[in-house]
Write a protein that binds this DNA or RNA. Structure first.
Lengths: 205, 205
DNA sequence: CCGCTTAAGTAGCCACTGTCAACAATGTAT
DNA sequence: ATACATTGTTGACAGTGGCTACTTAAGCGG
């Protein structure tokens, strides 16, 4: 993490380093204490250095939250299976990747969704955040078109899907899903029920 | 809130007053800044007075979180309908009450589920917290026995139900459910999908 | 009426944070 | 080479928060 011992006066790419360090912190600590000074400390620079790249703490947090959404979307895209045979095959890996992102980046995930937390984020109307949501909508739309998903108002189905995954992620972050066990057993079980709610009774899901 | 202007030196029931004040604070502010000094300020006592009743901040938070679970359970019990005709009639009011509790007490709800937040809570293995969960389990058990709910491992169904409601509550707290609209439209829509997943296909739910 | 326990107030310590201002080192264009 | 803009460092200030003495008021049993 630290550069060569003879660290030059000018870091070179401190902006990126600060962001990366902050992301590391948010990955480790669940507890929500995030201080600029701590970031600077761990980045190996003086406590005021970040101010050359970010006007204030909120600006850094806002940028980090946006990056969080980008990475979440990338995670989900990477988890997409090539040719899913069933709805379950399509949804399960994505749901697992989603929850895994949350548990791997607990504080970051919280930050991303804390709209009022210093007005830092505000996912509303933000394209980069909505891009994540689109992954889910896309599946539902295609599923409805293909007939594997009940023809119902898609908003409701999306709310159910997103709500369920978001809730499971939060519970997992807070250690309420006994993740010491198999790991994804509660999630898979919950997905089964969701799939039965989404799926077209005429087909097997 | 304040007693008579001639407030006596001895408050009389400061312990309860502190708790009540803290609950008020957690009801108002979404943002998660909770300081003992602020509680004392709003309770109208000196900043050190609470220490006569609570060893430290964590102890107060722990007690408050427990009370939160109690109140949540009371809310759910009060929302139970007398003679529900369908599964939907049984679940909808309870789900609405659950989400309403969260949006009415945003910071409190967060506190209740933040296991690591200073080790204050730790819902795990706590009877008062599990009592809330039992409300859901009870519905599922009775529904399975009555045949209105699919005969599946109840853990999975509980995970789905709890996860969904918890997720919707969190989203609502963070203002991501456009609650400016009808109010419970997204929740009801999501519940529809959940109900179809839970419900026995042989009967109407 | 008196002394003791309890419950409150006052004052303060110590650590820490966000932010700013002044200064220093480095890179760069002239 | 020299002046300037960038980027980093140091130091400080104001505010805050948890927590801990010490002091004072109040209630109560004798």
């Amino acid at each position: 993490m630290q550069d060569a011992p003879n660290r030059p006066y000018h870091h070179g790419d401190l902006r990126r380093a600060v962001i990366e360090t902050a992301l590391d912190m948010l990955r480790e600590e669940k507890g929500w204490q995030f201080t600029l000074r701590e970031v600077a400390r761990r980045a190996g620079v003086s406590h005021a250095a970040p101010y050359k790249h970010f006007p204030d703490k909120a600006a850094l947090l806002a940028e980090i939250a946006m990056i969080g959404f980008d990475r979440l979307r990338e995670s989900l895209s990477a988890a997409k299976s090539e040719a899913p045979k069933t709805l379950r095959d399509e949804i399960t890996p994505i749901a697992r990747a989603y929850v895994a992102f949350g548990t791997d980046n607990p504080a970051l995930y919280r930050l991303m969704f804390s709209a009022e937390e210093g007005k830092a984020v505000g996912m509303h109307l933000n394209e980069r955040a909505l891009a994540v949501f689109d992954v889910l909508l896309e599946i539902l739309r295609r599923g409805q078109a293909a007939g594997s998903i009940r023809k119902r108002p898609i908003e409701g189905q999306a709310a159910a899907g997103w709500g369920l995954i978001h809730g499971m992620t939060m519970l997992a972050i807070d250690g309420l899903l006994v993740p010491e066990k198999v790991g994804s057993a509660p999630l898979d079980a919950a997905l089964s029920t969701l799939l039965e709610g989404l799926g077209n009774p005429a087909t097997q899901h």
